[in-house]
């Protein structure tokens, strides 16, 4: 187990990088799926309905 953890620690990402990547993903999701600017809403309209996001 110790060996596994050491191996994982060497090759795995730090928590900060993981948080950064998750933040990037969440930002893209917010812009594509939830931001209410009229342009974004109209462009993403069919996709928002088809993914079950609250749209209007």
């Amino acid at each position: 187990m110790t060996t596994l953890n050491q191996t994982a620690a060497k090759s795995s990402a730090g928590l900060l990088s993981i948080a950064f990547v998750a933040f990037v993903g969440a930002t893209v999701l917010f812009l594509a799926g939830h931001a209410q600017s009229a342009t974004l809403h109209d462009a993403a309209h069919d996709m928002r309905h088809a993914t079950g996001f609250p749209c209007h």
């Binding site: 994982a8 795995s12 990547v21 993903g25 462009a43 069919d46 088809a50 993914t51």
Partner: peptide, 30 residues
């Protein structure tokens, strides 16, 4: 329809990024 394709790809790209962040978190814990 082109916008639907683009925004569908963007949405799933965001899901993909979040999923991989989850993989990295799991790997962080071995």
């Amino acid at each position: 329809n082109a916008l639907t394709v683009i925004f569908t790809c963007l949405t799933y790209a965001s899901y993909g990024i979040l999923l991989v962040a989850g993989f990295a978190l799991a790997e962080h814990f071995g």
